[in-house]
């Protein structure tokens, strides 16, 4: 590679910028707090058997609908006398895979489809984008539920259907970013300098696209927690008696008037984890976008 070619290349994320990005992220107090919450919650999920003496699936017939802050049951018990704290902790073991796995799977699929659509364009790219348009035309929740229903309930089905419905969204983010970069002056310059398309893809396009996918994906993990809870609520997720936050909320509906905490507590867990993902996603967006970073 000639020295001139080296010059025309703008490096979007030079090595030293990685440090800057980390600094920017650490300056964002809400993002750091979100990250701490996620780490703690994840640790609690792993250590669940050590953190509670109750079995989340076996109820105590003498202690049904015990209110929160009772001795032995900090968060109370549900209509079968099962300890809610234990069910929240064990439920977190489902919540994390349900949030992360669909996003990672859809991220990989969306990256490939989006690059085909946005970078390589041509006929096949156009075909991919038009196909994705069709999926946008079906309300996301409805499509996911329809897929999950036809495939049969269970955790793998839920994760698969969530991955399918968010893939178009990630692909669109990738395609838009890639298409913008493709026509950027420094990419034109690299092309004039005789870089191959693959090299341009690797050196000019991916360094912009990957952060966009990471930010979009992280922010959407929050939505996935809520989304997965919806599956549980409809009885499509993990089957009882496995503790699932969404299913816990629907389980508490029947006793809402007399024991509102049964539905309320798992909802709070969902909101906290979902908010934490949102704040971390926001922090990443600022940290990974040099323009936003300098503005602060």
């Amino acid at each position: 590679m000639s020295a001139a070619a080296e010059d025309v290349r703008a490096r979007p994320v030079p090595r030293s910028a990685r440090r800057q990005a980390a600094d920017a992220f650490l300056r964002d107090r809400m993002a750091v707090a979100g990250l701490i919450v996620l780490v703690l919650a994840h640790a609690a999920a792993i250590l669940a058997p050590a953190l509670t003496r109750w079995d989340p699936t076996i109820g105590d017939e003498d202690g049904i609908l015990v209110p929160p802050f009772s001795p032995g049951h900090v968060l109370g018990t549900d209509e079968q006398g099962r300890d809610i704290l234990a069910r929240i902790l064990f439920g977190a073991r489902l919540a994390f895979p349900e949030a992360v796995v669909p996003v990672v799977a859809a991220g990989a699929a969306g990256l490939v489809l989006g690059l085909i659509g946005g970078f390589f364009q041509r006929v096949i790219g156009e075909a991919v984008m038009r196909t994705l348009d069709v999926l946008f035309a079906i309300p996301m929740v409805l499509l996911a539920i329809a897929i999950a229903t036809t495939l049969g309930s269970g955790l793998p089905t839920v994760i698969l259907s969530m991955a399918i419905v968010i893939t178009p969204y990630i692909a669109r983010v990738v395609a838009t970013t890639a298409a913008q970069q493709r026509s950027a002056p420094f990419v034109e310059a690299a092309r004039c300098a005789g870089f191959s398309e693959w090299k341009i893809l690797r050196r000019e396009i991916l360094p912009h696209v990957i952060p966009a996918v990471v930010v979009y994906g992280t922010t959407n993990m929050g939505a996935m927690v809520v989304f997965a809870a919806g599956f549980g609520f409809l009885g499509l997720g993990a089957q009882p008696p496995t503790p699932d936050w969404g299913a816990m909320i629907s389980g508490g509906m029947r006793s809402l008037a007399s024991a509102p905490w049964v539905s309320t507590v798992p909802g709070i867990a969902i909101v906290v984890i979902s908010l934490a993902f949102n704040y971390v996603g926001d922090g990443l967006r600022v940290a990974l976008d040099p323009r936003l970073r300098t503005r602060l």
């Binding site: 609520f233 539905s263 969902i270 909101v271 949102n278």
Partner: peptide, 18 residues
Amino acid sequence: TLIGASAPVFWIGLLLSY
């Protein structure tokens, strides 16, 4: 708005209903 957007609709519905 951030909390509202991070909460399941059915949960908000139950809280409002209660």
